[in-house]
Design a protein around this nucleic acid. Structure first.
Lengths: 148, 148
DNA sequence: CTGGATATTTCATGCTGTCAAGTAAATGGG
DNA sequence: CCCATTTACTTGACAGCATGAAATATCCAG
């Protein structure tokens, strides 16, 4: 029967406001990420994988876990990176079932340039003083349960 | 060789930490959103459109602007919502070129249930006191330039 | 009325994602 | 040792998202 609204009325307005702000940040962050990736002729998924490969050669399986997707999906993404010379597959000498995806030199360069162009981070945060950033950091940490 | 990092060394560690936290929040938010949508047999895009339609019948063109995508893309998303009885197209009496997408009663219900299941907002914020939430809100607002 | 702008759709194409099936290699219990 | 199982990856089929170009219908200004 609760036809009308009521969907948000149980949350206090302050929480609601913060939620909306976070939503805005998420949207903006995502948007800028895709844009930055596109600027380097990469899709978001390709950029994410390339970013993961910056940590060193990684088994396909592990990439899938980190991206929270099926391994078969990673196959395609790495295929496309490979066909552009940004990544390569290596055999894992310790286990011949696994294939290690690794960034090539070109891949590393692209990944670094991309990371450098992710301005979302710097620019809006520049608005805040060191002290404020510290407060923000601690609040976010608490939100995420990083500091129980 | 330039093995060692260096890619982020020009940003101070505090900013870097905040950026990473925001990245984590973005990832978690997105993940939960898709999950909540899937629980109602919707894709993320469909859920977003349905959410926009909660604001009333909306021209296709406007949906595209709000989603920041091409209008031709919206056609497909609304098609799929329509084929499930969650949305419908109406003619705009004022301009016969435009079609207004509108949520059906079933669409409104789904959209409300979905919104109710978006717990990301509430749960982590519960960690914070009212005062802290206020501080957080103000910091986020400043970051977003909402209060110049 | 005519020409140009606007709103939507259709089509072709590419990427992301899932799932089911298949291959290859590791592993462990008998 | 051997076979059954598990694990890692790939392939193929399919759906959805997203873009761009071209078609259609309508609006609007001159």
């Amino acid at each position: 029967m609760g036809t009308l609204v009521g969907m948000t009325s149980r949350i206090d307005p302050l929480t609601l406001e913060v939620v909306e702000l976070i939503g805005t940040i998420v949207a903006r962050y995502y948007e800028e990420y895709e844009e930055a990736a596109a600027k380097h002729s990469l899709t978001g998924a390709q950029a994410r994988v390339l970013g993961l490969l910056a940590g060193g050669p990684t088994p396909m399986r592990r990439l899938a876990q980190q991206l929270k997707c099926e391994p078969s999906n990673v196959t395609g993404i790495v295929d496309r990176l490979e066909s552009r010379g940004l990544a390569e597959r290596r055999l894992d000498p310790a286990d011949r079932r696994v294939k290690l995806a690794a960034a090539t030199e070109a891949g590393r360069e692209t990944s670094e340039r991309l990371r450098g162009s992710l301005d979302f981070a710097r620019e809006p945060l520049a608005e805040l003083s060191d002290e404020e950033r510290t407060v923000l950091r601690d609040l976010l940490k608490r939100m995420l349960g990083t500091t129980p």
